[in-house]
Every structure is written in C-alpha cells, then in structure tokens.
Design a protein around this nucleic acid. Structure first.
Length: 558
RNA sequence: GCGAGCGUAGUGUAGUGGUUAUCACCGGGCGUUGCCAACGCCUGAACCCGGGUUCGAGUCCCGGCGCUCGCACCA
C-alpha cells in the first residue's frame, strides 16, 4: 500500500509539473475541491468530452443540448433536490442567531424535517418559537441552506432565488417538450449534455475524486415503459463482466444473461452498461479494473428504481465513476405536478377502444341557477349515477348538506367515445458520468513507470483518442535550417483541423522525447540535417520507441 | 464539522533561534555533426498567509488558509 501511495505522489507531482492537473487558485493559497486543467490538461479534458459526445451520438437517436448552470429555485424544488439536500435556516433579527427552522419547530410538529419551505414558513409565522439566545425572537424568512451553491438571480428585491445546478439532468427534463417535438413525437430518444455541476461538499477529499465544481456528462434516455426494447447485446456476448448485486454478491456473467435473468431489471439499463464499458475502453481505461455494482434499495437516490454504479479501480481503490439509473417517471411527473404543464408522450392503441357512455349529466341552464355554487359538485355526483336512476334523488354534498336533484335539473347522456391512444409519462434511463473521476483513472491507468539507463522513467500511455497532443515536432538543433523546416511542419500540423502539435526545440533530443512521453504524445517527429536535404523526417513512436524515416510530405495524419 | 499530522524553488528535499536558506532533478540561454532525461559554460527559481515572542524566526507561540489521514457527511 505504501508503494501505491508513493506512486500516487509521483503521478500527482508529474501532473502538476507538466501542466496537466493543478490545484486551482494556488496563487492565493488554494481552494479546496477545485482544480485547474492546465495547458496540457485542458486539451485532455475537451478530448475526453468529445469522445463521450461522439460515442452517444453514434446511437442515432440522441441529440446534444446545453442548459444553464444557474437554475431557478422552483426547478430544483420540484426535482426534490431542495428537500433532499437542504436544511432550512432562519435568522433572529434581534440577536443574529441562525437556527434551523425545523429544529425550532420540533415541539410543534411531529416531523418538521419533512416539511417544505412554505410549510415551515407558515408554521414558523404561526408559532413564532422562542429564540435560543434572546428573549424577543424576530425570525427572518426561511431560507434553504444545503449542499447546493445558492445564488440570487437578479438584484435587490426583484432578485429570485436559485442554485448552481447539482446535475445537468434537470435541464434535459425541462427541455422535454422541445425534445419530443424535435424527435417527431416518437420514443425512444435521448438528450446528452456535458458541463459543470456544483456541490458545496462539506469536506472534499482525494484530489479529483470529490470536487466542489465538477465536469459531468449525462444522457437522459426517454422510453415507453410498456414497450420491451430489443437491444443488440451480441457485441458483448463473449465477455463476462463483474456484477455485484444489491446484496453484495458478486457474479461473473455476460450482460445479456444478466438482463435476461432479471439481475439487471431493465434491458436498456443493461445495454447502456455495455455501451459505458465500450466508452471506458475507448479512452484507455483498463477493462479488467472495471466492475458494476448495483445499489441496495436503501442506497438508491430519491428518484431511482434501479441503479448500477460503474466502479473503476485505481490509486484510491474502487471509485464510482458512472451511475446508470432507471429513474422511472419520477422527474417528468415531478415537473408536471409543479407546473401543471403536460410532459407526456402519446401511445396509439393497436385497435381503437370504443367506449359506450350511458348515464346522466346536469342541464346547466336549469341546474346552474338552481344550485349556484354547488352546481359543480352536483354535476360530479350526477355523472357517477347509473343509467337506471330515477329522479328526484337526494344527494349529499361534501360538507354534509343534502340537496334534492329533480328530473328537470338533469339530462340523459348516451354516446359512443372512440379512443385511439393515450398519453403517458415516459420513463427515463440515465447514464451519468463523472468526467473528472474518469479522467483521473485514464491518467492513473496510463501512467507507467519503468527504468531507462538505471534512472526512473515515466510516461502516460494515453489512448490516441484522448491524447492532448497528437504530435511533437523536434528539430535536432535549431540551426542550419532545421528550425525553419520544423516550424513549417509545426504550422502545417496546427492548421490541420483536429490535430494538435507541440514544437519543442529546448534541451537535448533525449530529454525532449522524455518530456513528450510524460504528457503522452503518441508520435514525435525529428527534423535533422538530412531533412533539410530531402524533406524526410524521423517518426518516433512513444509506446515502443521505434523510429522510421519517411517524407514529411507523406505523413499519414496530414 | 471534530481530531491528529504536515506546509521550504516547477518537482522532490536538507535545514540545532544566529552571516548570503542545502542538494538534486527542473526551467532558460550558448556551445556541441548529434536521435532517447549525455556533456561543458552561463543563468532562473522557494521558507503558505497574518499576528506575536525575541536583538534576531524557515525554526518557538497564536489565528487563518491549504494538504494528508481517521471520524462524521456523501446522489
């Protein structure tokens, strides 16, 4: 274990020195839970994001969106984050003592912890509980204080409370109507979003593993719960993976078997587990150090009905880096309830349903003036009657009063209703990726320590797909035209779309190879005297140190 | 948030209250007909911040900030 810790320290030192990951605001003494991606790390992060985006877009029914990080209070109240992540505070205006509102009201309610902000506010106003530090309490309005960074949208009294988003998901849910329309009202479809999330951690630890501002990438995939999806599991058919179920029992089986046996409760969850494994492999994560762990029922988030964490093993042990959750209809339903707007999809019946209606309703022209304010209630009651009821009938209202409904107040309803389909709330399967945690493990798994000439030698064997620099251009010496030729090649590479080149003319050639290896450059190109004569250059590969000579005008990546 | 330990160049470190803060790698420049951290010369770079004790503080004391670990918390 001590060896592991020392390796971790050497890796972190190298990442700082090479401008990959650095503590943020170091100039001012640092800030816990915040990291900078440096001149090399910045590119690494955006490459990783791009690979992730391309991976999901390749499914064909996914779109990328981008929503604000600043989110109005009501949105996160509806989603459950305010309740799940908040303590409600109030301040005594007489003595400045801050108290938790639910604690103050413990004597006046059986479970104040479960009350919403407005319920707490009205109870606080009604009870006006004693202040623990002064005799004349004067409680301020109740405010939410929780793990979300709170802010104010707008200034002064017109300001509106809000939060920095704790996940990107809510933006996808609030965009559901636009997504539904974009996809021509046909499920299934998904939306992805890559961006920052915020969480005011009490105690950030373990470097990139627990941050206060972090990069996340989420897919919200909307499905019809009545349709059994038919996913193709064949590409993983020969691959048994490590699955730990909700009781902590470990299984080794194929994804298809796990989905068919019911261990994975929904095939789409299983399919995304496979796609997630593919993604991790494509960015250089060691597949033998990946496992899937199912949440126990008491561990599940407030919105989820099944959840699998993808855990990656590295310097900090097994760390959850991806969560694949079946969120059911929780979120869309919550936003429907909060706004009164429809967030539903339509499902056509294979055969229209014919319904015969034979009953009663009120005759508005007579019943309205007769019953006035009670007419609505009378209508509901009358419409529940069978066709063979005989009027007059005495009905009982909700407040206990009785009214006589006569034949003149009602009329017979006889019609045939044809229903061709129905509206339902789609279910959501959500793979949520902690990009920083994945990026950390990409670095951890790529970090290779060897010896060269008796000296320790370090390199990052990064996958080409995420390597921050594609090619380093090295003039053997910066003279005799070698520097000019190298700069020409460097310029050509830099102006080639998608290609990132690094020019390095400082120090010995061996030192420059070593520095390139430390930031994971897959290919170095050396310009020497012969290059000036015949425009051939040496291609040196990071992983095996092999060198081949070819014309600089025929480089495969240009 | 509580407790313990720690904080010195880009990195890793030495430093018993006393002159100009040690060493190595590192970074930069020049040279080197030369391809895997080579060599020579020159050069750059640090005591986390703020108070206090003291003639004098990197060193001792207090507070803050940060880091590591344990507990607590954790979608």
């Amino acid at each position: 274990m001590a060896n592991d810790d020392e390796r971790l320290e050497r890796l972190q030192g190298m990442l700082r020195q090479r401008g990959i990951l650095l503590p943020a605001f170091d100039l001012y003494g640092g800030a816990k839970g915040f990291y900078d991606f440096g001149p090399v790390g910045g590119r690494l992060r955006s490459r990783l994001n791009q690979v992730w985006i391309d991976h999901w877009l390749s499914l064909g029914n996914i779109v990328e969106i981008s929503c604000p990080t600043v989110t109005p209070y009501e949105v996160l109240e509806a989603s459950g984050h305010v309740g799940e992540f908040s303590d409600f505070m109030t301040v005594c205006g007489q003595c400045d003592e801050a108290s938790r509102a639910d604690t103050l009201l413990e004597a006046h309610h059986p479970n104040p912890d479960a009350l919403s902000q407005s319920e707490l506010q009205s109870l606080l106003t009604k009870v006006n509980p004693d202040c623990p530090s002064c005799p004349t309490p004067e409680w301020s309005p109740v405010v939410a204080q929780n793990l979300m960074f709170s802010t104010t949208i707008g200034a002064g009294s017109s300001g509106r409370p809000g939060f920095m988003r704790p996940e990107t998901a809510q933006g996808m849910f609030t965009s559901f109507p636009a997504l539904y329309r974009h996809f021509r009202e046909r499920l299934p479809f998904g939306a992805i979003q890559v961006g920052k999330g915020y969480r005011n951690e009490i105690s950030p630890r373990q470097g990139m593993i627990r941050l206060r501002e972090f990069n996340m990438a989420e897919l919200e995939y909307f499905i019809d719960p009545n349709e059994r999806p038919n996913h193709d599991f064949s590409s993983w058919s020969s691959h048994e993976i490590c699955l730990i179920d909700g009781d902590g029992v470990s299984h080794s089986m194929t994804l298809q078997h796990a989905a068919e046996s019911g261990l994975i409760r929904h095939p789409t969850v299983g399919f995304f587990m496979g796609k997630t494994f593919d993604f991790l492999s494509s960015v250089g994560i060691d597949g033998t150090r990946v496992r899937f762990r199912q949440h126990a029922s008491d561990e599940m988030a407030h919105y989820a009905s099944d959840c699998w964490d993808v855990e990656i093993h590295g310097s900090y042990g097994w760390i959850e880096c991806v969560g694949i959750a079946h969120r059911g209809c929780y979120d869309l339903e919550a936003h429907e309830t909060a706004t009164g707007k429809s967030l539903r999809a339509r499902r056509e019946f294979s055969e229209p349903k014919i319904r015969e209606i034979d009953g009663w309703t009120i005759d508005g022209g007579v019943a309205g003036p007769a019953f006035r304010a009670d007419a609505g209630q009378v209508k509901t009651i009358v419409e529940s009657f069978d066709a063979d009821v005989e009027f007059p009938v005495e009905v009982t209202l909700s407040d206990g009063r009785n009214l006589a409904v006569a034949a003149e107040h009602v009329k017979r309803v006889q019609k045939t209703v044809k229903e061709t389909g129905e509206w339902f709330i789609p279910h959501v399967v959500e793979p949520a990726f902690g990009i920083d945690r994945i990026l950390w493990h990409v670095l951890d798994h790529a970090f290779e320590e060897t010896e060269k000439g008796g000296e320790p030698y370090r390199m990052l064997k990064l996958a080409d797909s995420v390597a921050p620099i594609d090619v380093a251009i090295l003039p053997l010496f910066e003279k005799d035209g070698m520097d000019d030729l190298a700069l020409e090649l460097h310029q050509l590479c830099c102006s080639t779309s998608g290609l990132v080149s690094l020019y390095d003319g400082s120090g010995s050639i061996g030192k420059r190879y070593a520095r390139s290896d430390e930031i994971g450059v897959p290919i170095c190109i050396t310009v020497d005297h012969q290059s000036v004569e015949d425009r051939t250059v040496t291609i040196r590969k990071r992983d095996d140190g092999s060198q081949t000579r070819m014309s600089m005008d025929q480089l495969p990546f240009l």
